[in-house]
Design a protein around this nucleic acid. Structure first.
Lengths: 218, 218
DNA sequence: CGGTTCCTGACAGGAAGCTGAACAAAAAAC
DNA sequence: GTTTTTTGTTCAGCTTCCTGTCAGGAACCG
């Protein structure tokens, strides 16, 4: 999921961001309402985590404007314990849930996951090449609908390709992806893993560029 | 909504009843567990407000029996401030939310409304994999129709999987589910619990992804 | 054709994972 | 308060299969 986090406290924001990223979600974090609204205007989010007390205005106003635009993106409100009236108003304005500070990060995960489930129908950003579907965040690869397991090294290689779609990736770049910096390898390991990936994903997914490297078909 | 209120303090009960009625909900108010269970057996409620401290037993037992019967009716727990362990146990038993006495009546309204919203249109979040049925809300797992008991750790692991359906869950994520954040564990506990879950749920439900983690079949 | 680059099956060795059993700790029953 | 039962953790030996290497052959290019 792509999640918009609006929170001005650095420590809390960072903790939340890390925890959500660990759950394989993408997080954009802003500390001001105007920044958040810019982001909302240009990007499509599947969930908004909204602190109500922000330096440049009330989070509730953002929520109101959002709903006023007929935008039904799920919103979870974050409030301090003493802002009960805000919380109630938030729910009335169309928030989906709320969390009271200080909250347990697992609690947050659970709520986020609940929202994700409720609105799932549009799962994670999916990378598609022909028959092959790659979900980078959740480590799932499907070929013709069937899930394919990759070993960690195979993942490391494929991941490197996903970071450079459309570009030719050199052999040494791929080597760096396979091995921690410095560890010497004296063999054609990269070629071997390319071969193994091709066997699992299909012959045409990875193209050889002689003398330079490889490229993901797309 | 039709709401069952189980609360033995006359003043509080009356206040809650009036407030909820004012929100256009129907309330049945009982002061004893046995009365409440009679009511539950004969009437269908959409929400239960449950005080944990009652003259004829623990409210938690009512909750347990309810969930044991595979009843997923939302339950909001009402506790005194010092009964924290009860609250945690309540959430573990499948309660949906809790209120700490003394609470603001508007707060109560908000929670009631949130629960109503959350469960409208999504009656029983049932997860099914082959022979295995998992009811995340009520913590009930059935294999081939037979209810299977999981220990708390086993459930914690399984729950972590349910939060990441379709995704590969890393060992460290699972470790975080088993142990409070930070406490380092130097052993194969995760593997042991995976082993035990497989024994209870069937061999094929959890798949190993070597070097990366595990995945729920589905 | 000759030289170079790349592909891929096979294989040994070892790392990662599995699980029965033993022990410790906690909870429940008495 | 003591015993019994359940639950949680550790360990060791076993199994699985990942991984780096090599070698023979295929593809490419001048």
């Amino acid at each position: 999921m792509r999640i918009l986090l609006v929170e001005d406290e650095p420590n809390l924001g960072e903790a939340v961001r890390e925890h959500i990223v660990a759950d394989s979600h993408a997080v954009d974090w802003f500390k001001r309402i105007d920044e958040a609204e810019d982001a909302l205007a240009t990007t499509s989010y599947e969930l908004v985590l909204l602190d109500l007390h922000l330096p440049d205005g009330r989070g509730l106003d953002l929520l109101k404007r959002l709903r006023g635009n007929n935008d039904t993106t799920p919103v979870i409100i974050i409030t301090a314990r003493d802002q009960i009236s805000d919380r109630i108003e938030g729910l009335n304005e169309g928030a989906d849930d709320y969390l009271v500070k200080p909250f347990n990060l697992d609690e947050l995960s659970a709520r986020v996951q609940a929202v994700a489930r409720r609105y799932s129908g549009h799962p994670n950003p999916l990378f598609k090449v022909g028959q092959v579907e790659i979900n980078q965040a959740s480590h799932v690869v499907r070929v013709g609908g069937k899930t394919v397991d990759l070993t960690s090294r195979e993942w490391a290689l494929l991941d490197q390709f996903l970071r450079h779609t459309q570009a030719v990736v050199s052999k040494s770049q791929l080597e760096d992806a396979l091995y921690a910096f410095g560890s010497e390898v004296e063999s054609n390991t990269v070629e071997v893993y390319i071969s193994r990936l091709r066997k699992k994903l299909g012959r045409d997914i990875i193209q050889t560029v002689r003398g330079i490297g490889y490229r993901l078909e797309g």
